[in-house]
Design a protein around this nucleic acid. Structure first.
Lengths: 333, 333
DNA sequence: GATTGGCACTCGGTACAATCGAGTGCCAGG
DNA sequence: CCTGGCACTCGATTGTACCGAGTGCCAATC
């Protein structure tokens, strides 16, 4: 690993660069760090750090900039979360004390909160619907040959799908099918739909089968929903219009964002920096993620997306706090 | 108004500037326009056009660029919609031939289609839910003292609100209330809820009243939903990061976009250019809007948002075609 | 009287050189 | 091993000259 002094130097370079966005020179470091050494010594150390891949120079005779690896070392060994201004803490507290209304609206507002606290773009992934218990299921006629199957889940989410009906399914049959569907589905989950028991009536069975099939394929918005806030802040975080376009383009493809977060969590990480996640277009971005638990089970995730030179301690603290509070809030119903 | 020649000159300036984004000089105009006059004559005319507010010079001794007023004259008198590449036409046709699934998903996809056809950001405003006929209403318990009122509308939209229950509303009471609610609401609209008739049971009446009240206030996402596509394209349309930030910031506040579109339509316009809509942050943008009709009634709107130097003929044609096709598609259920 | 060619003038953009200064790498001495 | 010193690099800034696109105006022309 890195010895004490190199670590300290790397730390100040990262911190300085995060703050100023300017390459950091040896003199600055020598003066800013607590260990009292000359700039020449710092230069030697920085040359080593560059050789080992923690720093780069944008061009000869400029200061140094951290690489992805440098940021990685920083977040892993040189910082611990926990520093969040009291004002910010208060805002998060207030938000969750006052939060109310539909699940979707709350998650959306949460993303805006997280964005405004961190000043980066924020993402909230909703709990997967598959896991929730079905509280109600019914069929509603929309048109002569089209019905809507509506399922209400225990967490307040409503899933719906259109179902094409065969000719000559009259209101009575539809009502029977609706009732039968309810008896079949209520209490189970979307992930494991109870195997439909025949009702003894062919028409009913057909409609129910179609409804269950419609519920099974979730091309709706992918398996789970995602809410985003503060996308505009990404524009301030970069200077090239082209970079902004790429990033916003990615954010528009919500399923990419979901799988990005899931991927990071699956690898047991809470931070992914630059090239660590595979997305070319986000090579100058970093994500900070935290899962949240509802009633003791991991259900979704919150995260922020910013430039690689983001304020990691703050972002980690904010994400941790919001995910924890959100989980708690959702657990109490 | 403008005489024949001034109009022709204005037209070529606008068209040229839209294409090249560069100030247009008198020589270019003299050579590109059909009327054969010298550049000196064009200069004189352009000086007048500038005096009357149709053109401006970014600085002395540069070419001219159109003002908002110039664009306005262009769209009002110098162009008619109708030119849409056959390939684009085909794409729109194909889309609506294949379109299926939930209303929301379809509208979202429509916004992406429109964006990709025009290469600007696109907006689709859903039909207001108030107008749709209620097909089903029910109450579902989520927690001991919380229920969800779920209303299915004729157009396939599902509205839902949480309702806080008084102590001691048991499942039987809730079931009764749900049934009573259904008899009260089915067939009416959210805009004019039938005045609740007493069921004779105090608990039932209380729950029903709470449910109706919850449905009445629509803080959900405002009165109607909005879907956007191609936001990232706005980044390519401008060169300053700051401008992009402002525009994306506005787009994130969806209700602002809705009221912008509504405002434009209410004024009987289909195009609003730069300062014509009141939004400071969109002063370098133009919107092109068209309402769409479902079953003969205006229900929603589609629009595109781009820089003031947008391709108006193309945008007008695309918006017109998409709105018309969308209306037709929604009318047939 | 409208149009036009001609001409002086303006002013942004580019090219180039000079200079500055921040920062480095290296080395010799403590 | 650390440090002061020094030569060197290279981006950024400044200044100057100049080119060229484009204008406004005017006298000549049709």
């Amino acid at each position: 690993m890195l010895d004490e002094r190199k670590a300290a130097i790397l730390r100040t370079v990262v911190e300085e660069y995060i703050e100023t966005a300017q390459p950091v020179g040896s003199a600055h470091v020598a003066q800013a760090t607590s260990l009292s050494v000359s700039s020449a010594t710092v230069r030697n150390e920085m040359a080593v750090l560059e050789h080992e891949g923690y720093l780069v120079q944008p061009h000869t005779s400029a200061g140094r900039i951290p690489t992805d690896k440098g940021y990685r070392f920083f977040v892993d060994h040189l910082t611990e979360p926990g520093v969040l201004g009291p004002a910010q803490v208060q805002r998060v507290r207030d938000f969750f004390d006052r939060a109310h209304g539909e699940l979707e609206r709350m998650l959306h507002d949460t993303s805006r909160l997280l964005s405004s606290v961190t000043d980066y773009a924020a993402v909230v992934v909703s709990p997967p619907h598959e896991a929730a218990v079905i509280r109600s299921a019914q069929l509603v006629r929309l048109a002569p040959r089209v019905a809507l199957v509506v399922v209400v889940l225990g967490n307040g989410v409503v899933e719906k799908r259109t179902v094409d009906l065969d000719e000559g399914v009259d209101d009575a049959s539809l009502g029977a099918a609706s009732a039968h569907l309810a008896t079949q589905l209520v209490g189970s989950t979307l992930a494991q739909p109870a195997t439909p028991v025949s009702s003894g009536d062919a028409v009913t069975d057909g409609v129910v089968a179609a409804a269950v099939a419609a519920l099974a394929d979730d091309d709706d918005d992918g398996p789970d929903q995602v809410f985003m806030g503060g996308v505009a802040r990404m524009a301030s975080a970069f200077d090239g219009v082209e970079t902004v376009r790429k990033v916003v383009g990615i954010l528009e493809q919500q399923y990419v964002v979901v799988s990005l977060l899931r991927d990071v969590l699956d690898r047991g990480l809470s931070v992914a920096i630059g090239s660590e996640h595979g997305l070319e277009q986000l090579s100058t971005c970093a994500v900070v993620v935290a899962p949240y638990e509802v009633e003791g089970r991991v259900s979704g995730a919150v995260g922020v997306l910013g430039p690689t030179r983001m304020n990691y301690p703050q972002a980690l603290a904010a994400v941790a706090m919001v995910s924890q509070r959100l989980g708690r809030r959702l657990s109490e119903g």
